[in-house]
């Protein structure tokens, strides 16, 4: 008899004693028995509530604020479409800034991909010693743990008029005068962005390269593919999941980028996120919210497009 009970309890919830049956938890277990859907729902509930409370509240507030009116003392709950009308009217600077934002994100993505592939490939196949592999990979990952602001600000003493790079260039007599384009230019902003974001691409690409079977690489060589052909026809297709994961990071975070443009780009060519900040600087909270809503929609559209093009579940 005892054995029979054991065998049955392997497949089902154990039989409860009278004491357990009477307790609250015992009654919950009884009520959920044989209802896996309800159990799953209950397990998801705390996380869902937390997300709704934090992200959800913030999102809803921004959407609501975008229909309010900005006043000298702050937001007034007077509903209006004026924020969107002035933002989206033909000839508004919003359009140019949106195009510029998309351009920057595109250049950022392309640059980061072009930089990340050689770096990942070198880490994967050129460097043989596992010691050096981990050391170099760590060099890429440590900045990831450093504050974003710190990483940006360290560019200033490097690339300023009196910065390290100019000192070296002038010391070596490569130039007579400090090179100005190194700081406070669109070029310097782009360079800084590439180096800020490369970590998001090197990681995923390197890890998906590591998953390529050594025999697959040998097979490519044996069947006539030179190292270049192997790279483009075998390695790149097989690292698309990593490329996609990295691209999602870069696009989403790139669209939200505002600080680099200010600190290193010289605050001359804001992107959408920078525009939000400038609105807030002059207390235009409603206008800022409207831009934020549009930026969120653009982000969602781009992410949706990327996911349509590539199934994230394959990663």
């Amino acid at each position: 008899m005892a054995q029979l009970t054991d065998a049955r309890s392997l497949g089902a919830a154990p039989d409860l004693s009278e004491h357990q049956r009477a307790s609250l938890s015992g009654r919950i277990v009884q009520a959920l028995r044989g209802k896996p859907g309800l159990t799953t729902g209950l397990l998801l509930l705390p996380g869902t509530l937390w997300m709704l409370l934090t992200v959800g509240t913030a999102l809803v507030s921004i959407v609501v604020f975008s229909f309010w009116t900005s006043g000298f003392t702050g937001l007034r709950p007077e509903y209006t479409l004026a924020n969107y009308q002035s933002l989206l009217r033909p000839g508004s600077s919003f359009w140019g800034i949106t195009v510029w934002t998309l351009q920057v994100v595109a250049m950022l993505l392309i640059g980061v991909i072009l930089l990340a592939y050689p770096v990942s490939y070198t880490l994967w196949r050129v460097i043989k010693s596992p010691y050096w592999k981990s050391a170099l990979l760590l060099l890429f990952i440590v900045p990831f743990w450093t504050s974003y602001l710190t990483r940006t600000i360290t560019w200033l003493p490097m690339f300023g008029r009196e910065g390290v790079v100019n000192q070296v260039l002038m010391g070596l007599r490569i130039t007579d005068e400090p090179v100005e384009v190194l700081l406070y230019s669109e070029f310097s902003m782009m360079v800084a962005l590439w180096f800020l974001f490369i970590v998001f691409m090197v990681g995923p690409i390197y890890f998906s390269m590591q998953r390529i079977d050594e025999d697959i690489m040998s097979a490519a060589a044996v069947y006539g593919a030179s190292p270049w052909k192997t790279f483009f026809l075998v390695v790149v297709p097989l690292t698309l999941p990593g490329l996609m994961a990295g691209s999602l990071f870069v696009v989403v975070l790139g669209l939200a980028e505002f600080f680099t443009e200010r600190a290193i780009g010289g605050a001359q060519s804001p992107m959408l996120a920078g525009l939000i900040q400038r609105q807030i600087d002059v207390f235009q909270f409603a206008g800022a919210s409207a831009i934020a809503v549009v930026l969120i929609l653009i982000t969602l559209a781009l992410v949706g497009l990327m996911l349509r093009f590539f199934d994230i579940r394959r990663i």
Binding site: D213, D215, V234, L240
Partner: peptide, 13 residues
């Protein structure tokens, strides 16, 4: 020269 691998090493993509 052709090689048939023990793991087959077919291109998964």
């Amino acid at each position: 020269v052709a090689l048939v691998f023990q793991s087959f090493a077919l291109f998964p993509h």
